[in-house]
Simulated scan of single mutants.
Amino acid sequence: MSDREKSRIVEAIPSRNEGVSALASAAAPFVYFDLVSAWVFRDGVVKITLEADRQMMTPTGPGQDFAVVAHLRMGLEASRQLLHALQDVEKHVAELIRLRDEAAMPGAPLPQIVN
């Protein structure tokens, strides 16, 4: 845990300067998605559309459709931070897969990684 994270205090209401708002964070959504269907950079803002597939039965058998689950909006610096975080996850997962395969345990579940 970084020094910045250790020094962050979850608020006592009202909010504290530089704190994390417990009240505002309580309703933050968890977003699962299967694909990035569109992105654009316009007027200094990165805009990304996320979709998830949905399974269903149709008169002719199993089918699927897609639903937009989120519209992400962020500044360029935030997009760089998101990219860095995803690249870091990818690097750590690749190493875990390599170690698992070297141990002749392909298909075994990967351990949790915590930043």
Results as ranks from 00 to 15, higher is better:
72 L>Q: 02
50 L>T: 01
96 L>A: 04
33 F>L: 00
42 R>A: 08
24 A>C: 03
75 G>C: 11
112 Q>D: 08
80 R>S: 15
58 T>H: 10
107 G>V: 12
32 Y>C: 04
88 D>Q: 10
2 S>M: 08
84 H>F: 12
88 D>R: 08
28 A>M: 02
68 V>F: 01
69 V>S: 06
83 L>P: 01
106 P>C: 09
32 Y>D: 06
59 P>C: 04
110 L>D: 01
106 P>N: 05
86 L>E: 01
85 A>R: 11
44 G>W: 13
70 A>P: 01
33 F>A: 07
45 V>K: 14
61 G>A: 05
68 V>E: 14
57 M>K: 09
88 D>L: 11
64 Q>P: 01
20 V>Q: 00
40 V>K: 10
65 D>L: 15
105 M>A: 15
30 F>Y: 03
41 F>W: 06
68 V>Q: 12
85 A>S: 12
54 R>V: 15
96 L>F: 02
6 K>A: 14
16 R>V: 13
41 F>V: 15
69 V>F: 07
54 R>F: 14
66 F>L: 13
14 P>V: 05
73 R>Q: 15
89 V>W: 13
82 L>N: 12
44 G>M: 05
21 S>E: 03
9 I>H: 06
30 F>M: 03
5 E>P: 03
95 E>D: 07
42 R>C: 00
19 G>C: 12
36 V>S: 01
23 L>H: 05
53 D>A: 12
8 R>K: 11
11 E>M: 07
32 Y>W: 08
7 S>K: 12
33 F>R: 01
12 A>S: 05
82 L>K: 10
21 S>G: 03
54 R>L: 14
11 E>V: 03
54 R>E: 10
75 G>I: 09
27 A>M: 09
3 D>T: 11
88 D>G: 13
11 E>W: 05
10 V>Y: 03
65 D>N: 15
8 R>T: 14
85 A>L: 12
103 A>P: 10
100 R>K: 02
112 Q>W: 03
28 A>T: 00
20 V>E: 01
85 A>V: 12
114 V>E: 06
91 K>M: 11
66 F>Y: 15
73 R>P: 02
31 V>K: 00
57 M>C: 04
62 P>T: 09
15 S>G: 05
25 S>Q: 10
33 F>V: 00
36 V>W: 04
114 V>D: 12
79 S>Y: 11
28 A>E: 00
35 L>K: 14
36 V>D: 00
24 A>T: 02
71 H>F: 05
10 V>D: 01
9 I>A: 07
106 P>S: 09
87 Q>W: 04
67 A>V: 11
22 A>P: 00
49 T>I: 03
60 T>L: 12
82 L>C: 08
103 A>M: 03
37 S>W: 09
114 V>P: 00
47 K>P: 00
2 S>I: 05
111 P>M: 01
37 S>M: 10
64 Q>G: 15
47 K>G: 01
10 V>L: 11
13 I>T: 10
31 V>C: 04
39 W>H: 13
105 M>W: 05
